[in-house]
């Protein structure tokens, strides 16, 4: 059977898997971004060059440590991480979302840290000089200015997660990976190839949906004064 008629006959199933894939990634990204951005806000030093062992210096060290650990997590092969999580979360969606969340941490964290700390020194100094407290500076000045960079980190994390989510089928995770897995197990049967093909390329479609979503979010949330 050719691809077109396969899609026509199995539109419902394919859409269902696509939707699962999208949702699983969405939840993981929402969770991972919240954790990463919140953490980055907490550990952003109030000063650019803090004194040794001051609170700001310690925060900076914690931040650098978190970057190293999350970067290391990203190098762990997805199947290995999934099976390591199995005893904790069991087969299925919980393990999948947890793994995808872990993989999303680094990109968002790195971009949050970079965005928050690259805010122009003059802007920060005048914010301070006008009597803005640390929290107000962080929320009213640094976060909005860092937001485009953070959003870009979320985009990259999403692309990574869309690809990795396909592997989650191996631990009974939801999503397009199920199609690949089914096709693989039915090697030689009718439509086995189409299933693998749709499962693989479907990820690109899911990624495209996210890209459109982020373009809209960017349009709505990036302040007009810093839009390029």
């Amino acid at each position: 059977m050719d691809l077109i008629s396969y899609l026509r006959e199995n539109a419902g199933t394919v859409l269902l898997y696509g939707e699962q894939h999208l949702l699983v990634v969405f939840f993981a990204i929402a969770l991972g971004s919240t954790i990463s951005i919140g953490f980055a806000l907490l550990v952003t030093p109030g000063e650019a060059a803090p004194q040794r062992w001051s609170l700001d210096w310690i925060l900076g060290a914690i931040r650098d440590g978190a970057l190293l650990v999350t970067a290391a997590a990203l190098t762990v092969p997805s199947l290995a991480l999934l099976v390591l999580l199995l005893p904790l979360f069991g087969l299925g969606a919980a393990t999948t979302v947890t793994a995808l969340t872990i993989y999303s941490l680094y990109s968002v964290l790195r971009n949050s840290v970079a965005g928050l700390s690259s805010v122009d020194a003059g802007v920060l100094e005048s914010a301070k000089g006008l009597g803005m407290g640390r929290l107000r500076r962080l929320i009213r000045v640094q976060l909005p200015l860092a937001w485009p960079v953070i959003l870009n980190g979320i985009r990259v994390a999403t692309l990574i997660d869309v690809a990795i989510a396909a592997v989650a089928a191996l631990v009974r995770g939801p999503g397009l990976g199920q199609l690949v897995l089914t096709g693989l197990s039915r090697y030689g049967a009718a439509n086995a190839f189409n299933q693998v093909l749709v499962g693989t390329l479907g990820c690109l479609v899911v990624a495209a949906v996210f890209e459109i979503f982020y373009a809209i979010v960017e349009r709505l949330t990036v302040p007009r004064g810093i839009r390029v």
Binding site: V162, I164, A166, G177, V180
Partner: peptide, 18 residues
Amino acid sequence: SGFAQALPPYGVLVLIAF
């Protein structure tokens, strides 16, 4: 090259084996 990150190596591997 950025967008292609979303292509799952798992699927690519199986496709080539097919």
